[in-house]
Structure formats: structure tokens, C-alpha cells
Design a protein around this nucleic acid. Structure first.
Lengths: 172, 172
DNA sequence: CGCACTGCGTTCGAATACAAAACCTGCCTG
DNA sequence: CAGGCAGGTTTTGTATTCGAACGCAGTGCG
């Protein structure tokens, strides 16, 4: 499957991956949330090569995740800023960081702690239900097709199928 | 930067990306949460080629995200199951799917809806603070170095730096 | 003027990852 | 014994990605 095909899948995960499912893109976005905005800064902080960086920034702008806005005239220079669409990726980025904190830290512990300005405490991010506020666990989530459902070659995430497979298995 | 170097960064995001930051790996994990467990099923559902699938499964097992357990003897056949470490990726997967639902759906709407068994309603996932329960927004989160902090070549996510750059800029 | 510098990229072969298809193994079934 | 099935590996060609170097505009400095 090529990158472009991913976008056409009737699966939100595939479509998202078509935008951010690239090693560099996620690191660039992390830096965006750190208020890094300029080509040179990205390049130096990430150690990414210039052609790749230029390509990823271009793609993110084309997908309206970043916006290219001039910060000075004469020589016109641009900086890359998160759009509202880009800002909405915060949960994705935070979830990834948190998983790394919990599961990929070495003996010394996690490299950094997050403090919530509202309550003043160090916290972990928790994913909850928008309706009842309870934490989400995989087993309590069922999925049913929505208006944009296509032929489910990819049965979408959480779909409670008994694993689609050839009906009966002879051997246990 | 090569893949392996990512793991050594003192950044939880980089370390997580070293595990799951691959287009196929995330799709495989999505299917895992759908209770897909067998090589053939992954292959057919994803349209992934066999060598790549074998490679990704091997890596996920090596990283303890999946476990390879026999489900029958004589011919020994294995299935791949999420470990607790793997199950903890649920927020990552859900956040990605939700972003796709919101921002990548076509006119017809999102391909699927999620229903929460506990409250019986269709919901969106929301990322909240574990301490006060309020939704997290980027601007209200500050970060300070934790015990595992290294030299911050990558200043970690959310770090509230005024963008590290060469002190004074000659041109405005 | 003329030369260097800064910010932001592009162009170029070499290395890598990937796709498509065929092949192999161990066991079972007809 | 032919064929099938689950779960891979091998082989071969193509698309991506990479690192190093170059291009280029607009100053700034002597």
C-alpha cells in the first residue's frame, strides 16, 4: 500500500496516519507544541536533514496542520505555526509521550514531569468518556458504523466483531 | 538519524516513536485492539505484504507490546496478543482515531461511532488531568525535568522555553 | 562595490525500505 | 500421494529516504 492510498480508506486511523504517521512528522509536531517555528530551529533541534524537513513541512502545510506565516518582510521569512487542526493533535502527542514515560523510561525515571496549571499538580493524562467522564478501557467500548462508513475492508477500530474469519474452524 | 538512535534520546516521544512510529505498526495495533490475532488475518485485512508483517510482528514481540502464544500444538500455531504494555497504547490509538474522525472525515461524516458501555452513549474521547479531571489544553501544561532528564538536546514536550535560539537576533 | 553571512530551501547519487510474487515447512485431510 | 492451510522466508525490482553539497535572495560590513 502506498502512502496516498491510506487517505482513501474509510478508517479514521488510516487517514490520520496518512498525515502524521511518519517518524519525523511526529517529532516536528512535538517541537511545534514547544513553540518552535522556524526551519533552522527544527533542523538543529531534530538533527533532521534539510530535504526531509522541507518536505514534511510542506506536507503539513498542505494538510492544514501547520500554517506558513511571514514574520518579517524584506527578506520575507516564514514561520510555521499550528493551526486549530494542528492544535487538536495535542491528545495524540500527549498520549504518546505518556506511554513513553510509563513504559520506555530507563532506571532513572521519566525524563520530564508535567504540571497542570489549573490544579498545580504533576499529573498523568487520562482518556475519559465525553459523556460520563469515566476512564475509557478497550473492553467497554463498542463501535457501530457511522454515516461515513464504507465497505469495511478494514473493520474500524473497536468494532466488536468475533474476528471475521472463515466461518468454522475444524481444529480447536 | 537512524531508527535505533531514537531509542536513546532522553525524550519519551522519541522512544515511543522508535516502537510504534511506523505506518504499518499503528495499523497492526489497531487490528490488535479489534481482537485480530493471527498472521493470515492481519495480512488479509491490512493488505500488508508478508515480509513486512513478519518483521513488524517480530519487532513488537521483541518490545513486549505483543506476545506470541501458541493456540494449538501439532502443527504449532501462534497468535499475537496485546500485553499489558500493549493495552496501554489504547489512548494513543483512540486519540488518533478521534482526530481522524473530526478532521479527516469526508462529507458523509465519520466512518464509525463509539459507544461507551458504561453510560450507553456515543462519545468522544477527552484527555483530562489525572489530578483534577479538567480537560488538558496545551497552554495550561508546563513541564519540568524529571529524574531521567538528560542533556536536553531535545527539549521535551511542553517545556516552557522561550524557544532556545542564539541569544540576540540582529534583524527584527 | 564586493564579499560574507543568514535563512531557506533544492539537487544529486548512495543506502534503505518497501512491494509482489514465488517458495518452503509441518501437518492434516481426501 | 495430491492438495490445502497456517505461518512464515527468499528473491527481485522499485519507491523513499538519506547525507552532503550546492543555489539563491536579501542584507551588513568595509
Amino acid at each position: 500500500m502506498q502512502w496516498n492510498k491510506l487517505e482513501d480508506e474509510a478508517c479514521s486511523m488510516a487517514r490520520t496516519i496518512a498525515v502524521i504517521g511518519d517518524r519525523w512528522t511526529l517529532l516536528i509536531l512535538r517541537d511545534c507544541f514547544l513553540r518552535v517555528r522556524r526551519f533552522e530551529d527544527f533542523q538543529q533541534r531534530l538533527g533532521i536533514t534539510r530535504p526531509i524537513l522541507a518536505d514534511r513541512l510542506r506536507k503539513l502545510v498542505a494538510k492544514f496542520v501547520l500554517a506558513k506565516v511571514p514574520y518579517q518582510e524584506r527578506p520575507v521569512r516564514y514561520e510555521y505555526r499550528l493551526t486549530p487542526k494542528g492544535l487538536d493533535l495535542y491528545p495524540v502527542v500527549m498520549s504518546i509521550v505518556h506511554w513513553g514515560d510509563v513504559h520506555m523510561s530507563d532506571r532513572k525515571g521519566r525524563p520530564l514531569l508535567h504540571r497542570h496549571e489549573l490544579c498545580g499538580k504533576d499529573f498523568d493524562p487520562v482518556l475519559v468518556c465525553s459523556e460520563c467522564g469515566e476512564p475509557l478501557v478497550p473492553r467497554q467500548v463498542h463501535v457501530h458504523p457511522g454515516p461515513g462508513a464504507g465497505s469495511p475492508r478494514h473493520v474500524p477500530l473497536g468494532m466488536d466483531v468475533p474476528v471475521p474469519r472463515q466461518p468454522a474452524r475444524k481444529r480447536a
